[in-house]
Design a protein around this nucleic acid. Structure first.
Length: 461
RNA sequence: GGAGACGUGGUGUAGCGGUUAGCACAACGGCCUGUCAAGCCGUAGGUCGCGGGUUCAAAUCCCGUCGUCUCCGCCA
């Protein structure tokens, strides 16, 4: 187990099950309160209803133990032979079936956790076929089930409690991100995924049939965020899907993933964008720590930051091979994070001042060093989680930079139009939350952090 | 797009020229009133991804093919 924490999910988690029985012309509603496994200890002596999955069965002749699992945890139920009906049903059960058990809660030294439910009635809500295609509970030989097989049966894979924790972390992380944005005058927008043309380049976009036309799936909401700046919204954010047609076979790439994006106006440089992102991330990590009682490092601000030139120099000093000037290889990203961690104890590091050669035409350039851009990447534990920049908002300069990059002006005319009628200086960034979750929890792949991953080969389930 | 690796019962694996293809877990049947990675006894389940070749003999060697994974490029 690489991480461990206790989730706080007690609030509002008592569900009601209504049984409606018509009697004459009236309807009588019985309300039976469902109790969650982890709350059993607060109901000693009471009769309760548990509903969940059969986690494990242990037949002991005249006594049967059934471990029942719900979203809150696992608890033991006991079925005695003297209760003939329940005993017979339990004898026919298969693991991973969904059941309802009513009974009396009792303290019992011999029970796991010191608490158990003495079953009075067992009802099968949905029986599971006995032969599971992949193991659900930890058992011999289940640790290394091929990820591809697990993803084929993702709904079984996710029954493992620690996998649900991944989504708890993401949920709180994203809530923290939103908390910061909402408290700082950002407006939420949604941008379309269908586009009439590629947002840039064209080699990495998905082409789709759109009635009698061709359309493309957005590989970034960036142009639309910038339109929002031209619209005078000043500060916007969104959470949404992003599509990349890159044939990338790595543990950190997918063809569709969720992006967090924000953009803000009236900035002087990309450093203001970076400062904003720092605060969002701090807020996110704080929320995960506080809500999930999770022992994680909330980063201090400001995050370490160095220019590409400084990064290259530092890497050279540590004997890390330089593959390509002006950009970092994955190995260099890992090593740079490692070096910064040793020097400062920090998990995050900004790299700024990328040369124009490795950045798109719309990144603004440094006034005193026109061959460098006002852009940055943010690395977290050796993985790139953000690219951001101050954008070039002056139409004439934008067109000149596009031409320099060999971009045909006709293809970006709609984009350039955003800047023709008054647009404030602005910048923003795109964040990959899946990568943050992956690095935070030490997962083997972003796909593990994704409910239903999509990669070059996978379109199902 | 480039490079490398791996496909053996449901899952994880051993075997790497001649084995009735072994083991663990899961499954099925039996015994057991305190199990908790339960235990004990028994049963079933594999044309070793697919196709071709070499050989007296192929899970094992060679070629092709399909599937999967990893690294690089690219990126969030």
């Amino acid at each position: 187990m690489r991480y461990c924490f206790h989730a706080d999910i007690t609030v509002g988690m008592t569900c009601e099950r209504r049984m409606v029985r018509p009697i004459g012309n009236e309807r009588i509603v019985d309300q039976v309160q469902r109790t969650l496994a982890r709350d059993l200890a607060t109901h000693v002596g009471e009769q309760v209803l548990l509903q969940g999955w059969v986690h494990a069965l242990r037949h002991q002749g005249g006594i049967k133990f059934m471990l029942l699992r719900d979203m809150s945890g696992v608890v033991q139920t006991v079925i005695l032979k003297s209760n003939q009906a329940a005993f017979a049903i339990a004898g026919q059960l298969s693991t991973e079936s969904v059941v309802a058990v009513t009974g009396t809660v009792k303290e019992e030294k011999q029970a796991p956790g010191g608490i158990e439910l003495l079953a009075e009635a067992v009802t099968v809500l949905s029986s599971a076929e006995p032969m599971l295609p992949i193991p659900v509970i930890a058992e011999k030989g289940s640790e290394n089930t091929d990820p591809a097989k697990r993803f084929d049966w993702r709904w079984l894979d996710l029954r493992q409690a620690e996998k649900r924790d991944i989504f708890r972390v993401w949920t709180e992380l994203e809530a923290g991100f939103r908390d910061y944005l909402l408290e700082n005058s950002y407006l939420q927008i949604y941008t379309p995924s269908f586009m009439s043309m590629a947002s840039e380049g064209g080699s990495e976009v998905f082409e789709v049939k759109y009635f009698d036309k061709k359309a493309f799936l957005a590989q970034s909401p960036q142009f639309y965020k910038q339109m929002a700046m031209a619209a005078g919204l000043e500060r916007v954010f969104l959470v949404g899907p992003v599509f990349r047609a890159e044939p990338s076979f790595t543990t950190r790439h997918m063809t569709e993933f969720t992006g967090w994006d924000f953009e803000l106006s009236f900035i002087d440089s990309h450093h203001e964008v970076m400062a904003e992102e720092e605060k969002m991330i701090v807020r996110s990590f704080q929320r995960v720590r506080d809500r999930l009682h999770m022992d994680i490092d909330v980063p201090s601000t400001p995050f370490p930051s160095l220019t590409m030139a400084e990064a290259k120099q530092k890497l050279a000093q540590h004997g890390v091979a330089n593959v390509r000037d002006g950009d970092l290889s994955p190995e260099q990203e890992r090593e740079l994070s490692h070096i910064i961690k040793q020097e400062t104890g920090h998990d995050f590091v900004f790299v700024t001042a990328f040369p124009i050669g490795v950045r798109p035409f719309y990144h603004m350039r440094l006034e005193d060093q026109p061959d460098l851009t006002k852009s940055f990447d943010l690395l977290y534990r050796g993985i790139e989680i953000t690219t951001g920049a101050q954008r070039e908002h002056r139409a004439a300069i934008l067109e000149r930079q596009a031409l320099e990059k060999g971009v045909v002006l006709d293809t970006i005319q709609d984009y350039v139009n955003f800047f023709r009628f008054g647009c404030p200086p602005h910048g923003g960034a795109g964040i990959g939350p899946g990568r943050i979750v992956m690095a935070l929890l030490g997962l083997g792949s972003v796909k593990e952090a994704t409910f239903l991953p999509r990669d070059v080969r996978r379109l199902t389930p």
